[in-house]
Design a protein around this nucleic acid. Sequence first.
DNA 1: CGGCTGCTTGAAATGAGTCAACATAGGTGG
DNA 2: CCACCTATGTTGACTCATTTCAAGCAGCCG
Lengths: 240, 240
Amino acid sequence: MTETNVSFRALSASCKTCSLAELCLPRGLQAEEFQRLDDVIKARRVVHAGDLLFKEGNDNRSIYAVRSGSVKTFAITESGEEQVLGFHLPGEIVGLAGLDESIHNCSSKALETSSICEMPLDDLEDICLQIPSLQKQLLKLISREISQDHKMLLLLAKKNSDQRVATFLLSLSGRFKLRGLSSESFMLSMSRQDIANYLGLAVETVSRILTKFGDDNIVEVTRRSIQIVDHDRLLEVAST
Amino acid sequence: MTETNVSFRALSASCKTCSLAELCLPRGLQAEEFQRLDDVIKARRVVHAGDLLFKEGNDNRSIYAVRSGSVKTFAITESGEEQVLGFHLPGEIVGLAGLDESIHNCSSKALETSSICEMPLDDLEDICLQIPSLQKQLLKLISREISQDHKMLLLLAKKNSDQRVATFLLSLSGRFKLRGLSSESFMLSMSRQDIANYLGLAVETVSRILTKFGDDNIVEVTRRSIQIVDHDRLLEVAST
DNA sequence: CGGCTGCTTGAAATGAGTCAACATAGGTGG
DNA sequence: CCACCTATGTTGACTCATTTCAAGCAGCCG
């Protein structure tokens, strides 16, 4: 086995592991190390809209990589309502919040037909001990998760409804771009209900704002298809 | 060096490290391991109200344990406002969000005269490789941080102002209790401004609600001193 | 072709914010 | 030691953004 770094191309070529890019790419693993990581990963699994990836209270500690499709994570409040905590697109990791107490403290559901890779955490922790750079990378990912949550706290605490929706659209746009997809034209895989829930707004408010953005020629919205027409104005709205 | 587990009493006896209970206690480190951890910790440091522990963009990656006093963490928004992300009481760890990108992505400021232990992350990561249980414990702590943030997202997205303030008081109460302090009677080290900012409310709203809780004989509030009179009613308000 | 679910739109209700004035505590300096 | 000054906190009146309630519309599936 050679000592060359595993490139993004090589990762992508490996069917089982291509969605692990986020976990191992930034530091560049040695091929041997990469193989060890590869062994941990269970075969990918196809889920359909509404299927649960994992459930609050689950004792099966794993993290999941979205290969294709999309999922949402959510918690259930004392009063039984759902709180959407985040949406996860292809290439992103889900389940990093569930490392405590050996159980997941939130649930995850597929928004559409999706392909998912599962990595049992016990195994992952073990090879982290063997591959220091992987441990660092895992910590980084989790830390990034916290940063993301902090952005969300800020959004909920300080931004008005226009800013929230604009920020949401820009976040999706940026993440699509990162994965090489169109940042200006995409489909929403989540319902207005999910968006509203996530942004702490009423469905009606989200609907009204999308219509308004449409009237103002900032985006073109047709049902779940989004076309960002004026990226700059959207940016302006998001931070104003 | 004996192989006995380090007890809480032993930890507490160690001046330098007593606030590390949260990091090493739950799994019980061996004495030798404990010594290695102890070596990482820089001497404790006394900070005064308004002093910065660390600053956004700092390249000095460390986590901090609050030994006495209290601190807040906060981020600065694009428009220059402050967003309070959390308050940290004695025995709690600060700075877990800053492991990514080699910089802290939020800042931390002392709310009163406080004693703080600093642990450089590079050293901590190194000994994590030698002490697997410590790695798990660190992951758990970070994961708990995420859970806490999720609770906060839920609060900001779903709860009204009464519920937010009630939840806040109960959170403090519970954390004081956990550290062996009175859960029914305590001092707020943070200003109304900080509370309001944290809860996504206006100062006036926080003030009004505290007054109302006082009128309803749920708590007694005198400036920054809080006495919880009717814990059950407070619980009821928080979740209603 | 219904019927269902998800989305949009309008009108009315309301919770929280804003603005402004006032109160009190703690600190400073004459 | 007292008088003043500034910080922080409280209270009231008014405004407004967002929610709630209610109705109508459109795409989709059996």
